[in-house]
Design a protein around this nucleic acid. Structure first.
Lengths: 335, 335
DNA sequence: CTGAAAGCGCTAACAA
DNA sequence: TTGTTAGCGCTTTCAG
């Protein structure tokens, strides 16, 4: 069974305390003693029991990560950024999925608190009955990653989505498009709200009338883009540009366009959002708004760590800049 | 601060013990007492401290998941399967990445053991100096997911990769291809070894000579497929079929083929491996070997759970069947 | 049905 | 420099 301090103490002749201090490299233990104890620990394969340590110290060196859907490559990439940064700082992550369910989210927070995580990284659901109030009352430091919650904006680490969404649609409008389809994301996700707002404000700024039927809410999955665009084409609804909530939806849309024989970008221009790894390798490489996902994850963790180490510090909203990458699904193309 | 059993005891007039037993629904506490205590706990927002509980019970209800690279969509999907199954059984996952490094792997195992995980799910690196010996000596139950380690085959939950790889190449050979490029994965990953073995054995079975220069080792990333195939074409090396280690590499290859003007599948047939979510939505939907990733994750967790609950049970290798999906990058196509 | 006492393995005060 | 003692918050005997 597991080797304990007690065993090391018995085997070395020192007290449990001295062994503990030696292993933690405290400087009131003589070098020789340390050496002896260290050697013994290595020989017997001693592994510090972090559960006991955590109970005693009140620190777990673990943070909870509550993701909405980690099978979505976007989150997967963000989470990898988080994990990397966390590991580099001696932290571990306890990962949970909510699948955009408010109840699961609440449950997840509660369980993770029970596990005494030192902090929380959240990608929360935004809804009528969201957990904003509950989250606001948390004792542990927490950061909202890539999203926001009303009244908690200062806890967010995210990218400039509204601005970029607007820019995308403005680009379309300037190119003379009037029928710009917006394949929006779920309204319970703050990024959908921002991207949609960008769409509306771009129209407003260009003094163009919005055609509400060209705003279609999806769940943000591949199939959604495919089905919605297929349906539109079947109904002979004219569209000349598509601004998709994310790359997944855009890829689905691309597929539908191809099947119907519509030429991209000549007849229909398409811009996605997120710039997933594979998007530039598509047969028709996808124009998209590139969010630095790994950076987002890293920054989120680092910010959280700051607050763990310095609990009194006030929170401030942090933003990482994204940029529009023009590839083969738009007429304008980068060199 | 956090509400403790002590507070509930003081506030309710019962002893700490009774409160604890009431909350855990033990049947030697009277129903009314339970009700009172429960109400109080809910009111004060009591959350059980799992660290203390774990120290006392020796159970953490947490498993460690050591992934090679969770930004790879394949792992992301498997991990999601694991997380789902785990949550359904009241377990949480502590996620770590090794980026295919043996040292990080060893370190990760050790730290997770220190955190007293109830079991381990590994996607280990296979190398000269691998951690097989170390892993073999573990006290906690562990399962190797989607891979194998020599001597530990019984601990694996994986798919029938060798068979399917062979089948793929046999399909190519039967169609008259002689120059089949194999974009292999890293040799330190067991699935690469299996898929390559399938390639070789198919040639042997067809009594065809292998052209060693058509076996190219890659790291399994998108860019690799792109660069290797581009280089081959630049050197005017003739190839008429590509069997890629995974879909990522295949997509990169597809891109290179497109740039060079080679028609898929007429001039070059391509089959990938893994069948990632997006593969069927590519402009040219990718033929691939479909591994049921979520099932793999679920089965891995369930198997691990069996061993956690029943430590004496012997391990046996488990396999989930994959299947070849013929889409638009092959001449043969499913309806 | 309920309570008192012990102890999980560790670290932090305090003594020596 | 080292050892003794207490205690983190909980569950588990064992009494009552």
């Amino acid at each position: 069974m597991a080797v304990l301090l007690k065993q090391l103490a018995a085997a070395s002749g020192y007290s449990i305390n001295t062994v503990s201090r030696a292993l933690r490299d405290k400087d009131d233990v003589s070098p020789e003693t340390k050496k002896k104890i260290r050697a013994l620990a290595a020989e017997l394969g001693y592994v510090n029991n972090s559960v006991a340590k955590s109970l005693r110290t009140g620190k777990t060196n673990t943070i909870g990560v509550i993701s909405a859907d980690s099978s979505n490559p976007f989150f997967a990439e963000v989470i990898m950024g988080i994990e990397n940064a966390a590991r580099a700082s001696g932290y571990h992550i306890l990962l949970t999925n909510t699948e955009e369910s408010t109840e699961r989210e609440r449950e997840a927070i509660s369980v993770l608190l029970g596990k005494q995580v030192d902090g929380l990284l959240l990608m929360p659901v935004l809804q009528q009955h969201n957990n904003g109030h509950y989250i606001k009352s948390l004792d542990v430091p927490y950061i909202i990653v890539g999203r926001w919650l009303p009244g908690l904006e200062d806890h967010s680490v995210m990218s400039d989505e509204y601005e970029k969404a607007k820019e995308v649609v403005l680009y379309f409008l300037k190119n003379g498009h009037t029928d710009i389809l917006h394949l929006a994301g779920p309204s319970c996700v703050s990024s959908s709200v921002d991207r949609l707002r960008g769409y509306r404000d771009a129209y407003a700024e260009a003094h163009m009338p919005i055609q509400e039927e060209l705003i279609i809410e999806t769940k943000g999955h591949l199939e959604d883009g495919y089905h919605e665009v297929s349906a539109l084409i079947r109904n002979e609804r004219k569209i000349s540009a598509i601004f998709a909530f994310n790359d997944l939806v855009a890829v689905g849309a691309l597929r539908a366009l191809k099947e119907s024989g519509l030429k991209v970008p000549k007849e229909v221009e398409v811009i996605g959002f997120d710039d997933l790894n594979f998007s530039k390798y598509l047969h028709l490489s996808l124009s998209s708004v590139s969010i630095p996902k790994k950076t987002l994850g890293t920054l989120a963790f680092k910010t959280l760590l700051d607050h763990i180490e310095n609990p009194e510090a006030p929170y401030t909203k942090k933003t990482v800049a994204s940029r529009i990458v023009f590839r083969e699904t738009t007429l304008e193309q980068e060199p």
